[in-house]
């Protein structure tokens, strides 16, 4: 089970909105190398990990990744807060806005929705750890 701490792992205080940058940064939330995929990868792989110590690593990193996507969401949220209809249209944010308004939805920068094909969980120690390293080296 989990407990929530009511703070961000690192402060996010953005004073200037920027929907163009938000559309790129959202990939770090729901994209192929995003924090959501990272978290789900570690937390899915841990059940069949045969070493307690390594299961500990997967559990604790998977937990930390949850705090990471919370920070990414905070960034996107603050970059798009209170946009006007003109700003939404001019920035190209309208294609996201039409389906999700200013809500957070896990997708890649190109609009591809998050899905479990972004990561692997094979039940083989070496395979799973190699997958983790390959993924983590990119983000």
């Amino acid at each position: 089970m989990w407990n929530y701490e009511k703070r961000l792992q690192y402060p996010v205080k953005i004073t200037q909105t920027n929907p163009e940058i938000a559309q790129v940064i959202i990939s770090q939330y729901g994209g192929p190398d995003g924090e959501l995929a990272a978290s789900m990868r570690y937390l899915a792989q841990r059940y069949t990990m045969p070493y307690n110590t390594v299961t500990g690593v997967l559990t604790d990193i998977g937990t930390e990744e949850l705090a990471h996507f919370e920070m990414i969401c905070a960034i996107v949220y603050q970059l798009t807060r209170n946009l006007t209809p003109e700003e939404i249209k001019e920035s190209g944010f309208d294609k996201y806005y039409v389906d999700h308004t200013l809500a957070l939805w896990p997708q890649a920068a190109g609009g591809i929705p998050f899905n479990a094909c972004e990561f692997q969980s094979k039940g083989d120690v070496i395979t799973d750890l190699m997958e983790d390293m390959a993924a983590d080296a990119t983000s």
């Binding site: 701490e5 996010v12 905070a74 603050q78």
Partner: peptide, 28 residues
């Protein structure tokens, strides 16, 4: 409060829910 295991139970207000959430920016 930052965590539910350490809360001020003398308060008449459930600040966990009434105070801003961390992503609002002014908070953190």
């Amino acid at each position: 409060p930052l965590v539910l295991s350490i809360v001020d139970m003398d308060s008449r207000e459930w600040k966990w829910a009434t105070q801003d959430w961390p992503w609002e920016g002014g908070y953190n």
